[in-house]
Amino acid sequence: MEKIKIAFNLNDQDVSIETMPNKRLLDMLREDFNCTSVKEGCGEGECGACTVLRNGEPVTSCTMLAGQVQGERLLTLEGLSKNGELDILQKTFMEAGAVQCGFCTPGMILSAKALLMKNPHPSRDEIRRALSGNLCRCTGYTKIFKAVEMAIEE
C-alpha cells in the first residue's frame, strides 16, 4: 500500500501529512499529531471516547479512515480552549463535578459542544439524546447534564 498525502484543518491550523490510507483517523490524530485527548475505548464506534468534531459534527474517529478528512475541519479537545481561556463547557464540567475518571470527558465535552453550537438552548431530553453516543461508567451522567445546563445559562 502506498502512502497518500492529505491536508485538513486541525484545531484551527492547516496541516498536511503523508499517511497510509487505511490508517484510522484515531491513530493518525494520536500518533502523528499527538492529540492524545482522543481516547480509544472500544474500537467499534460504540463508546464515543474517540469523538472529534468534523465540520462541527461529532464523529467517532475509530470508525473513520485518515483519508476521509481531506479538506475538512477537525476539532479535538486540545483545540477547544482559545488563547489559554477555557471554553464554557470546560469550566462547567469542572464546577458541576461532571468529571470523574476523565476517560470519557474529551468525547463528552465535544459532543456537548456540537449540540450547543447547533442549539444554544437545548432541553434535558435534547441533551440526553446528544450525549447518548458517549458512554460514561462513573458519573451516572447526571452531573454531565448539569454541566451542559450550566453552560446554557452562561
Partner: peptide, 17 residues
C-alpha cells in the same frame, strides 16, 4: 465482550436521581 453486545446504561436511560 463489547459495548454493542453488553449494554450498559447510556444518557438515555438515566432516571432523575
Amino acid at each position: 465482550p463489547i459495548f454493542s453486545k453488553y449494554l450498559i446504561p447510556t444518557a438515555m436511560d438515566v432516571p432523575d436521581i
